[in-house]
Design a protein around this nucleic acid. Structure first.
Lengths: 341, 341
DNA sequence: TCCCTTGCCGAAACCGGTTTCGGCGATCAG
DNA sequence: CTGATCGCCGAAACCGGTTTCGGCAAGGGA
């Protein structure tokens, strides 16, 4: 049987109310009895039943995550790690994770509403943030805590954890420039996502810092699949510009560059350098292996759930905006131009 | 504001207790008032608060899923689809999904216990069933509903949904035999999983049905990674036996066979035929594309959550054991032996 | 000494449901 | 006509917590 608050009260010779207030940090409890109660809770392994608390407090110590099936392909590579991180971080704080899914756009916010109405989640983790994100609008307006995996322009009510993709893209350019490349293209990801603009800015910044000129023909947007990355690279190579290196906002696009190079008889690394971003496993298995910036999605999940719990428990927003660097993996796909090793 | 049972009672001129019993199918409610209550619930969009119910009934209308981090690599390919299916099936029945994770073996059953103790889940979905599964032991002993993705020898208290891997392996052999292959090897997956024995039996059955002889040197166990698949294939090719085709219990092992073939200068399809199982995306992108048996993990998730809800609501076990066939994808990796197309 | 704070805790209401118990009116058998 | 049965519903206790309110004793100021 569970040990209830009544058991605690009896064992301590107190009433339920005193025990409850002691554990919840009310000021009208003497520090001595507070300590006594806490010790007893430890000893009896007492943990209040979250459902029972929820009916009065409205909070159930559970974090919500709503997956969008429409882009489940996009989820696939990182979902397992990410989920593991979130649930690990949540359970470390005594929270559980509630996962739901929505198959289309209308169903999405309906799913959020349903979870909120039934008190299934005290707050939400929002992966794959978009520049104009209906989830953010909804939750901000409903005054429900949430935390972003990604950053957003209008930061009202937002806290986040994010990898500094702009730094990665900048460093990618500088790495290539350091190798001697002067004509460096950029294949960006989906512009509806907030990361796209950020990474583009990083590329531009890197090009400026390296005193290189950018050209619209060597900047491509919205490559979210391997095929689209391949197509973008193909256009670069056929544009008449002497491109010798390509920075990609995603690894899948970078793998597309491999295919485009193969089509044209170019050898990755020797004839065309490529840098990706994400650190997906396939990048380690292609030949030559893909130079990239790896993202630790498990760590991101841990951070996000921790932040969300802090947000729920009333921590001020300003302390809850964290960014971290990606880790550079120098591998075979980046070499000096027109040289053979 | 939420509409509570008190609102319902007032609107109907009844008491809370009558409303509650009417909605829960108690026999001492006249069919007329029962109908009236149901209509009103529909009209007012009343849904009892699961947390409030839980404190008396102990059930919270939520399904549990515990991920094992130790084999998160194994989860990766199918987790997104699977999760989407489970949550879709659950929400269709008015249930939510609670996800937790455990990093090691002891922590695993501890996680189950914690979820149960706090009433976070009314039952569990168990993916990747093992022949001797501690989760099954625990839940069976605790008399908690659960459902397996996979089958198990000791079926006491077990219901399941599973793909008939034995049929797939048998058909794989028959397909190859039909093409003219007579020396067919088998690379099995992890023997701790319950599927391994099942698929091995399917292979054996197919070989018998095709009047082919098996040889221990052409049967390998425990290949769960690409590298292990590669190693197994290498041993087959160096065994002195004239193997012309290999059936694999998993696609990743099959991709390993590609590597082994490349090492030896053999062309997949022409010199060595391969069949996989799972239907992972990479199989469609390799050259030649991998003939395989595709598994719909999203559908599996839907089925499993539906079954689990039925189990929780008292459906007898016998009705809750379902299997389905994998779908054969004939692609480029299976061709007649010693022929060129 | 008296009164008024203040600190600390118990009593009881409450949250939104479920479930037991008992009672009322109608029906039916005798 | 009476007494027992049955169908149907209300009253109230209960589940495991939280929160409001009030009271008692100790301490401080006048």
């Amino acid at each position: 049987m569970r040990v209830t608050i009544a058991d605690m009260a009896q064992a301590l010779g107190l009433t339920k109310s005193t025990v409850s207030r002691a554990l919840n940090g009310y000021p009208d409890i003497s520090s001595s009895t507070k300590l006594r109660v806490e010790r007893m809770a430890e000893k009896m392994n007492y943990q209040p039943l979250s459902h029972a608390q929820a009916i009065k407090t409205g909070r159930t110590r559970s974090l919500g995550l709503v997956l969008q099936l429409s882009d489940h392909d996009a989820h696939r590579p990182f979902l397992a790690e990410f989920l593991a991180g979130i649930s690990a971080g949540a359970s470390a704080k005594g929270y559980t994770l509630t996962v739901a899914s929505a198959d289309n756009h209308e169903h999405l916010i309906e799913t959020f509403r349903a979870l909120l109405r039934d008190g299934k989640a005290d707050g939400f983790v929002l992966p794959r943030v978009m520049s104009e994100d209906p989830r953010v609008e909804l939750l901000r307006h409903a005054d429900v805590p949430f935390v972003l995996y990604g950053r957003i322009k209008n930061a009202d009510g937002c806290c986040w954890y994010d990898i500094r993709g702009e730094d990665a893209m900048r460093d990618a350019v500088l790495h290539l420039a350091g190798l001697g490349h002067r004509h460096i293209g950029f294949i960006n990801g989906g512009t509806q996502y907030s990361y796209a603009d950020i990474r583009l800015q990083g590329y531009m910044q890197g090009m400026r810092a390296a005193n290189l000129t950018t050209h619209p023909d060597l900047i491509s947007q919205n490559a979210v699949t391997l095929q689209e990355g391949q197509e973008s690279a193909k256009q670069f190579l056929n544009s008449g510009h002497p491109v010798t290196a390509i920075v990609c906002a995603t690894d899948v696009a970078a793998l597309g560059v491999y295919h485009a190079a193969a089509e044209q008889g170019l050898k990755i690394g020797e004839d065309l350098s490529v840098i990706g971003y994400d650190g997906i496993q396939e990048g380690a298995h292609v030949h030559p292996s893909l130079t990239t910036f790896a993202v630790d999605n498990r760590a991101a999940g841990v951070q996000l759930s921790t932040l969300l719990v802090q947000r729920i428990t009333g921590e001020p927003l300003e302390n809850l905006r964290i960014t971290a660097p990606a880790s550079f993996l120098q591998r075979g796909s980046t070499q000096p131009p027109h040289h053979r090793t």
